[in-house]
């Protein structure tokens, strides 16, 4: 299940990383605005929650960590 979760995280990461840079910037997040039902503020909140190191970009590891927590949260609901 862990491998499956991480595989899914990678697929979602690619959806955000439109240019295939290998990381996600705030600008990438803002581009998702038209595609996801989230406001710019919410996308910014997501970005900042996932950007643990606050270095301005999301690495696949940070993204997977956030997704892993989400999946963990989901189990309890």
């Amino acid at each position: 299940p862990l491998a499956e979760t991480m595989g899914k995280a990678k697929e979602l990461f690619v959806l955000c990383d439109k240019e295939g840079k290998g990381f996600i910037t705030k600008r990438d997040m803002q581009r998702l605005q038209g595609e996801l039902p989230l406001s710019p503020e919410q996308l910014e909140t997501v970005f900042e929650s996932l950007d643990r190191e606050s270095n301005g970009f999301l690495t696949p590891v940070e993204f997977k960590t956030g997704f892993g927590e989400f999946v963990g949260l989901d189990d309890t609901t």
């Binding site: 697929e11 979602l12 996801l36 039902p37 919410q42 997501v46 996932l50 927590e69």
Partner: peptide, 29 residues
Amino acid sequence: DPNMKAGAANEGVLANFFNSLLSKKTGSP
């Protein structure tokens, strides 16, 4: 604790984000 409240709100937004991404992925093959 305001920090805990903010954390809980963020979790909701994160869940919304990941759910939307997941449905986007499954919705568009």
